[in-house]
């Protein structure tokens, strides 16, 4: 029974969502399922928060290895939660926008959360450089083509590309690096992307059918047999 109920629910919801595309009267039902998911997702926030407190609370209580990191995590979680929930120092009071100018939430957001997030994202610049250094090597024909394409795109995305080939006459404008970069992105790259996307779309259809028909049940923690 424990195994059958989720499969039946999956089948009904999946079938209704497919049908609702083709039958306008069923559209509302499809929307309602989306709303149900939203409601569940909102309640799941509590589940995640509870788990965070339990795991890190345990770590601090038992003074496990790296418990100090857990203390930072919990402090951040509680302070930010309180600032948002009780709208501390919010000029518009409890009914105002959570991120109103002057509120504690906004102060924490712009002075801690914002720079920390940007810093993590900025790491990409460094990792792109180190990964390019390792990956773009002319080991064979295909890798060499990839290397040349990478060079053109890198140059084409900067004003330097414009200066470097600005002298090429308009009749050969495709040979100007920015135009060449656009051509690579919009022709060979686009063709490859579309092929991958067609494959992915078919993969999604096949996977979804396996789930709807109950052929695939590993995600429920049970064997398919």
């Amino acid at each position: 029974m424990k195994r059958q109920v989720p499969v039946i629910i999956t089948f009904i919801v999946g079938a209704v969502l497919i049908v609702s595309v083709f039958f306008p009267p069923a559209e509302r039902l499809g929307e309602n399922f989306s709303v149900f998911f939203d409601i569940i997702a909102v309640f799941a926030f509590f589940l995640g928060g509870g788990n965070l407190i339990r795991i890190h609370g345990n770590k601090i209580y038992r003074r496990q290895k790296d418990w100090a990191f857990s203390a930072v995590t919990l402090t951040g979680f509680i302070v930010m939660l309180a600032a948002g929930l009780f709208k501390i120092a919010n000029p518009n009071g409890i009914t105002g926008d959570v991120a109103a100018t002057g509120s504690l939430f906004q102060t924490l957001y712009y002075n801690i959360f914002y720079p920390l997030g940007s810093t993590m994202y900025a790491l990409l610049a460094f990792y792109v450089a180190s990964a390019s250094y390792r990956a773009f090597r002319a080991k064979n024909k295909e890798a060499t083509i990839l290397l040349i394409a990478a060079f053109i795109i890198l140059l084409g995305r900067t004003p330097l590309g414009v200066y470097a080939t600005g002298w090429v006459p308009e009749s050969f404008s495709l040979l100007q690096i920015p135009n060449l970069a656009i051509w690579i992105m919009s022709s060979p790259n686009l063709a490859g992307q579309r092929a991958i996307m067609i494959g992915i779309a078919l993969g999604v259809i096949s996977m979804s059918l396996r789930l709807i028909l109950g052929v695939e049940r590993t995600y429920l923690g049970v064997d398919n047999e």
């Binding site: 494959g199 993969g203 999604v204 259809i205 096949s206 996977m207 059918l209 398919n224």
Partner: peptide, 30 residues
């Protein structure tokens, strides 16, 4: 695992006829 290979992975590893059959059906789409 590139794109569709991720979705095919479970079927591939299970080696179950039913799941492998779904991959063949997917190929017809291709």
């Amino acid at each position: 695992l590139i794109g569709e290979e991720l979705f095919a992975a479970s079927a591939y590893l299970s080696n179950e006829p039913k799941q492998l059959g779904s991959l063949k059906g997917q190929d017809m789409g291709k």
